[in-house]
């Protein structure tokens, strides 16, 4: 049997060791995801990449591809489940888009747009979480953290540092900083670290550059999250096409 699998009936190749997500990204097929980033160890926590293989729900970012595997991805039922997951992520944090300088560049928000989410559906938690503004160049706003651990992984695997971790369980899980004070300002995180820019939401943001690109002209104002060539765009202003 050749090394191919089927996603919604479309046959695509995969290399041994690749996950369903790896193969689909290479083939240009969009499987929604939030906690996954190519190059980092898959985490499988956001569950937005939930697909069905032989009737079982699995995470596409962690399940190795297998020859002849039949994967259901873009089905109305799965899209509905994924929308509910996004709603749950919205209500369990403090995701007030108009107050957040990540708005328009936020993957969680873009997933909401992608699934046509109109409201949070569930009663919001409004949890009280700590903001850490002790770092000169970066702010850590736990209100918006979705516990995807992208910063944890980027710091360990790409920056060769170990700045972040998740502490606590269930509703009290939260991101912590690996310093004796627990403050980001005492860590060795710098503005050019991968971990400083990888946050898919507005939990880790550069200071002083929040509003250089106006609302309405940001990545997901102009593109869908499903476009495979949408690179992550930082909040620091670069030259605009109409300037």
């Amino acid at each position: 049997m050749s090394n191919t699998l089927f996603i919604d009936g479309q046959e695509i190749p995969f290399a041994p060791g690749q996950t369903i997500m790896d193969a689909s990204l290479e083939a240009g097929i969009y499987i929604p995801h939030l906690c996954h980033k190519p190059g980092l160890t898959p985490h499988g926590s956001c569950k937005l990449c939930t697909v069905e293989v032989d009737g079982r729900s699995v995470s596409a970012c962690t399940l190795p591809a297998a020859a002849g595997m039949k994967v259901d991805n873009n089905t109305p039922a799965l899209q509905e489940v994924r929308k509910t997951l996004v709603q749950m992520l919205f209500v369990e944090g403090n995701h007030l888009c108009p107050t957040c300088s990540k708005t328009g560049d936020c993957t969680l928000q873009a997933l909401g747009y992608h699934f046509g989410m109109l409201d949070g559906h569930f009663p919001p938690f409004y949890p009280r979480r700590e903001v850490d503004a002790s770092h000169p160049d970066l702010v850590l706003d736990r209100d918006r953290c979705v516990l995807c651990e992208l910063c944890v992984r980027a710091s360990r695997e790409q920056d060769g540092k170990n700045v972040f971790a998740i502490s606590g369980r269930g509703a009290s899980a939260h991101i912590i900083v690996n310093t004796s004070s627990g403050k980001l300002g005492d860590s060795d995180l710098t503005l050019d670290d991968a971990a400083a820019h990888i946050c898919p939401v507005g939990a880790i943001l550069p200071k002083n550059h929040g509003c250089e690109v106006p609302f309405g002209r940001r990545t997901f104002d102009l593109h869908s999250v499903a476009e495979s060539d949408v690179a992550h765009v930082g909040l620091q202003k670069t030259e605009h096409h109409d300037e």
């Binding site: 403090n94 007030l96 888009c97 108009p98 107050t99 109109l118 409201d119 949070g120 409004y126 009280r128």
Partner: peptide, 18 residues
């Protein structure tokens, strides 16, 4: 019809919920 962010999720006034 719930109109706007505040009607839908509390919006800016909900920042006082902390």
């Amino acid at each position: 019809i719930a109109v706007g962010a505040c009607a839908i999720n509390g919006g800016v006034p909900a920042m006082r919920n902390h």
